[in-house]
Design a binder for these strands. Structure first.
Lengths: 212, 212
DNA sequence: TAGATTGTTAATCGATTAACAATC
DNA sequence: TAGATTGTTAATCGATTAACAATC
């Protein structure tokens, strides 16, 4: 079977569909159609239909998809079923919030531990997760074959930490520091700039109001 | 002057350019070209040139842009210079991390306070920021004319909180709860699903490795 | 059969890339 | 003048939307 490549946009929408169905809870109908989902999420119904067709071929005219099957197919496709480990570097406020956040589990992600130079953090237990000294990072990554690293350190230190992660065998980096990271070609980086995101929302609001 | 509309993608890239220049610090040259920025950020130089042209018209052939001017123009354009207030609802781990995060300031965003039903949070001081009881929300929003709300409550409560925010005069919502929010047409919503973002990175990594 | 829904094929739209002219 | 860089115009690419055929 040819793995017809799925667009970035589709990949970003699929979790929305899954969330929507899951959140229906006990009201979840046995069958669900692309049209229903599209109306609920205020999306174009053709977009939703195409997106669903890329993860399932079990849609039946007039009926739609078997809800339970679609959930499984979405979860499988998105990889929510096989668990993947990740570590965090930087156990400041954000790092600790991510460490303690229990929503990752539903998406098949497991945060193994956080690392920080601040010794005062090593004692505490964050919902079963620990903050470890930096010198344990490389060994733990190799031993547990951790391939995903989360950077939650100040911008000044991000590149150095990034280098350390790459040296430790990390292949994908989720970067919360507001700097561009220089990495070898084969390393995947996703940048998350929370402050810039909020500022963008503010800008869009201002623009919208002045347009009226 | 006609405000030629700027694409969503450009809006997402402009902060990268600004970050890059700022992070140069004392090494910052007097002039900077689109080509330089493009190479540093591994972007196509035509993209960068077009993006910069949308915020500045002071680029000089052979020389580039006056670095200090470009920084100002980017900051002005992105609204980092005039401060905008926002409130947070939900002072769990994530809500408190955002409340205490001091990176918003650089982007012209000021978090006024967080709100929560948990009384044990009201006493503490989070770097000068307070967690307040829910019943103070509407009054504070009206009094301070706060227009931006951040939802950091569990998914089950997000829609109710969203309704309350809209009622309180909030016009833009940054939603960290993994649910679609139903809002009136004139309310701006930006969804941030951290767990789904990390899972997507994990999926992309798996795909890349199996492709090799 | 009629109608709702799927899935496909073609048309449109928008963003990126390529080619080139202008200029300091 | 030559070369680096800007900025513009045209070509390409990819995603969305529209139109329609297939089917339960």
């Amino acid at each position: 079977m040819v793995n017809r490549s799925i667009s970035k946009q589709t990949l970003l929408r699929l979790p929305l569909y899954l969330n929507y169905i899951k959140q229906l809870g006990d009201n979840r109908p046995e069958h669900i159609s692309a049209t229903t989902i599209a109306e609920a999420l205020r999306l174009n119904h053709v977009v939703v239909r195409k997106d669903l067709a890329s993860v399932s071929s079990a849609g039946k005219p007039k009926i739609g998809y078997v809800t339970a099957d679609l959930v499984k197919q979405l979860e499988n496709f998105l990889g929510y079923n096989d668990v993947d480990d990740a570590i965090i570097v930087g156990a400041g406020k954000l790092g600790r919030a991510l460490l303690a956040y229990n929503g990752f589990q539903a998406c098949g992600m497991n945060i193994v531990a956080a690392f920080d130079i601040d010794e005062t953090l090593y004692e505490e237990d964050y919902f079963g997760k620990r903050v470890l000294p930096m010198d344990k990072l490389m060994d733990l990554c190799e031993r547990m074959k951790v391939r995903i690293g989360i950077i939650a350190v100040p911008a000044e230190n991000a590149q150095a930490i990034c280098n350390l992660l790459v040296e430790s065998g990390i292949l994908a980096i989720w970067n919360f520091a507001p700097v561009h990271l220089d990495v070898p070609d084969d390393i995947l980086v996703h940048n998350e700039n929370l402050a810039a995101s909020l500022a963008l929302l503010s800008k869009q609001l201002k623009e919208k109001r002045s347009a009226q």
